[in-house]
Simulated scan of single mutants.
Amino acid sequence: MWAQTLILVVDGISGPDTIQAAKTFQTKAKLAADCKVGPMTKAAIKQALANKGQGG
């Protein structure tokens, strides 16, 4: 599910690519796609990273 690779330039600015990436992640994680990285989104990111480390 998280196999898609996103390539973003880290510049400290939430531009259109960052906003789209956040919304896409939230949608795939079945969260509200509001582009706000609150506790639920942070937890989903941590879980996705943990799963990636396990081959998922």
Rank of each mutant, 00 (worst) to 15 (best):
14 S>Y: 06
47 Q>A: 14
14 S>P: 15
45 I>Q: 09
41 T>D: 13
39 P>T: 15
8 L>V: 04
17 D>F: 05
24 T>N: 03
18 T>G: 01
19 I>H: 11
22 A>L: 15
52 K>W: 03
37 V>M: 09
40 M>Y: 05
52 K>Y: 05
34 D>C: 10
43 A>V: 07
44 A>E: 07
27 T>P: 00
33 A>H: 03
52 K>D: 03
2 W>H: 01
31 L>S: 01
42 K>A: 15
45 I>C: 07
28 K>T: 06
9 V>N: 07
22 A>V: 13
1 M>T: 11
6 L>I: 09
18 T>K: 01
5 T>A: 08
21 A>P: 05
32 A>F: 02
29 A>P: 07
32 A>Y: 06
2 W>C: 00
1 M>Q: 11
43 A>K: 10
10 V>C: 06
55 G>P: 12
19 I>W: 06
49 L>M: 06
46 K>F: 08
22 A>Y: 05
3 A>M: 15
2 W>Y: 02
52 K>I: 05
30 K>E: 00
8 L>E: 02
1 M>W: 13
51 N>A: 06
11 D>L: 07
24 T>R: 01
1 M>V: 14
32 A>K: 13
7 I>D: 08
12 G>Q: 08
26 Q>L: 13
35 C>E: 08
33 A>V: 05
16 P>S: 10
56 G>C: 11
24 T>D: 00
55 G>Y: 04
7 I>L: 09
20 Q>G: 08
56 G>H: 02
34 D>A: 12
53 G>P: 01
12 G>T: 11
28 K>N: 08
22 A>M: 15
46 K>R: 03
29 A>R: 10
32 A>C: 08
5 T>P: 09
18 T>F: 03
39 P>G: 14
26 Q>T: 10
38 G>M: 15
55 G>H: 08
37 V>I: 09
4 Q>P: 12
56 G>W: 03
52 K>Q: 05
41 T>A: 15
